[in-house]
Nucleic acid binder design. Structure first.
Length: 259
DNA sequence: ATGTCTACTGATAGTAGA
């Protein structure tokens, strides 16, 4: 079984591109982020043609998350409780024998912006919610755009990035707190020395210069982690395809052997 | 260190957000 996460940066603008990727990689369950459309505007028909059904938590203009799957998922929770004002950023479903949570974590804008402490508070709320709702001895994954580079190796800046947005001790402490709820980072566990990134700014030729971050992550409990046979950051799908513009994030997927 | 992309607007170019 192949599970994936992808911040698509606007599903209306990305629909043809997303379909190209689904046909190429044939994932079974996909967490999508940054739909930038309302729940009612989700293009279910187009995904149905490819054999997918979707659970959707959208909103106008910004944010928005969804889960695509082969068999219908059962929604457990849409929206992080008490953090709804920060946008549609969490969708929790059960599907394919997994608790599958897709997350679009706040960006924070800059370390001195009002959004930054709110970002930290959002992560505190997330860790509290995970601890209360997901038992660490069950098969569960938390996938999405975390907007945190967990360690120096996850940034093109390396340790020189320490203290910048995505690289602060405060953000990394929140990430560690999430792991402490009973999760591991599939990519880092599978590739301890890996230096792949998942996001590159559209500006300044960042992709071609290698100026990226690994902020799109798949976390899972041990019950899932021990099934992981491969983890891929699908860098080719950060490039233009058939003249179609890519998201600024690459898709990330993991292959699991049968339970 | 900023050369892009997306979505919105009493829209039809300009702004905000990432």
């Amino acid at each position: 079984m192949r599970i994936a996460t992808w911040n698509v940066n606007g599903l209306r603008a990305r629909l043809d591109y997303v379909c190209l990727w689904l046909e190429a990689r044939q994932p079974d369950v996909v967490g999508l982020q940054e739909l930038k459309l309302e729940t009612d505007a989700f293009p279910h028909e187009r995904f149905a043609e490819l054999g997918y059904v979707a659970a959707v938590h959208g909103q106008k203009s910004w944010n928005g998350v969804a889960v695509l799957s082969r068999e219908a998922a059962e929604v457990q929770q849409a929206g992080l409780p008490r953090q709804e004002a920060f946008g549609a950023r969490l969708l929790d479903v059960t599907v394919a024998g997994l608790r599958f949570v897709t997350l679009y974590c706040p960006n924070g804008k800059s370390v001195d912006h009002d959004d930054f402490p709110q970002k930290l508070a959002w992560f505190d709320a997330l860790a509290g919610w995970v601890a209360a709702n997901i038992k660490p001895d069950t098969p569960a994954v938390l996938v999405g755009d975390y907007n945190i580079a967990p360690a120096a190796a996850d940034s093109w800046l390396g340790a020189k990035g320490d203290g910048e947005l995505f690289h602060t001790e405060a953000e990394r402490a929140r990430f560690e707190a999430l792991l402490a709820c009973g999760f591991v980072d599939f990519y880092r566990t599978h590739l301890p020395e890996g230096r792949d990134f998942s996001w590159w700014d559209y500006r300044g030729g960042a992709f071609h210069r290698g100026h990226g971050l690994r902020i799109d992550l798949m976390l899972g409990t041990e019950a899932v982690a021990r099934r992981v046979t491969d983890v891929v950051i699908d860098r080719d799908f950060r490039k233009k395809q058939d003249g179609l513009t890519a998201s600024d994030h690459a898709p990330v997927y993991a292959d699991l052997r049968d339970a």
